[in-house]
């Protein structure tokens, strides 16, 4: 097992080890509706991250007594496959996965019209197939697409990104090495149209000014991710939409 050495994460030109500028996102590609059984699904690749999300619901709650009389339940399970990380991760849920399942659920819930399907549940299953830093925010971005794909009523999508601190400066979308060797990480999720923050966490050290700057960096990146989310959903369904003229029709 290799000890994490002090790595210089920025070169003289302010470029990161993978060549990115400080405010640059890794390449991102989303595909919607990739699973047959799930009501909705999405697959995302962000840099080397590969994450698959399945949504089942609205469906009946089991055990029945957990159903809420006036709204739907939202359940979320974030899990990493054992081979997703360099050192095999044991299959049983870690405390980190338990916490992330909660914060991801709380990042998605504000966007959903939960009163629409009382006494049902919508279950979001996230599997990280390959991890390279910022997996929780990448999961959120894919989960929102899966929820939309499942036909869940929402007031907005949710997209998320992390802002890290490397060699003393803020950097957008930190990868695994940058997260490990950097001085801080701040994952942020937002509803892009409404401009509201549904997830914010941090570790490491940030000044007040850095928090303000991080929020602005995240806001811009989230708008870019939102475009990719819309593109993925449109592409999936546009192929099977015939050309339409404005006649009275029954859908």
């Amino acid at each position: 097992m290799v000890e994490a050495k002090r790595v210089k994460l920025l070169d003289e030109n302010g470029r990161r080890l993978d060549g990115r500028r400080l405010d640059e996102l890794r390449s991102c590609r989303i595909e919607a509706g990739v699973l047959k059984n799930a009501n909705g699904s999405a697959y995302i690749e962000l840099g080397r991250n590969k994450i698959l999300v399945a949504v089942y619901g609205p469906r009946e709650v089991h055990p029945r007594h957990e159903a809420m009389p006036d709204r739907m339940l939202l359940r979320c399970r974030y899990s990493m496959l054992p081979f997703s990380v360099p050192d095999r991760k044991t299959p049983s849920p870690s405390r980190r996965e338990v916490e992330l399942s909660k914060v991801i659920r709380e990042a998605l819930e504000p966007a959903i019209f939960v009163e629409e399907f009382p006494r049902t549940t919508v279950d979001v299953y996230i599997e990280v197939i390959e991890a390279d830093g910022s997996t929780r925010v990448t999961s959120i971005t894919a989960a929102a697409v899966a929820l939309a794909d499942a036909g869940i009523p929402m007031r907005d999508l949710v997209a998320a990104v992390s802002v890290g601190k490397i060699d003393g400066v803020l950097a957008l979308d930190v990868n695994g090495l940058e997260d490990q060797c950097g001085e801080g990480d701040m994952p942020i999720a937002m509803m892009p149209r409404l401009g509201e923050i549904t997830l914010i966490q941090s570790d490491g050290l940030f000044t007040r000014e850095e928090v303000i700057e991080a929020l602005e960096m995240a806001r811009k990146a989230i708008q870019e991710l939102y475009k990719e989310q819309k593109r993925a959903l449109r592409e999936k369904y546009s192929k099977i939409v015939e050309e339409v003229e404005s006649e009275e029709v029954i859908g």
Binding site: E106, P110, M191, S202, T207
Partner: peptide, 13 residues
Amino acid sequence: RVCATQKGGRGSF
């Protein structure tokens, strides 16, 4: 300095 942040709950900010 902020050494931890945690948003919780069903709403948004």
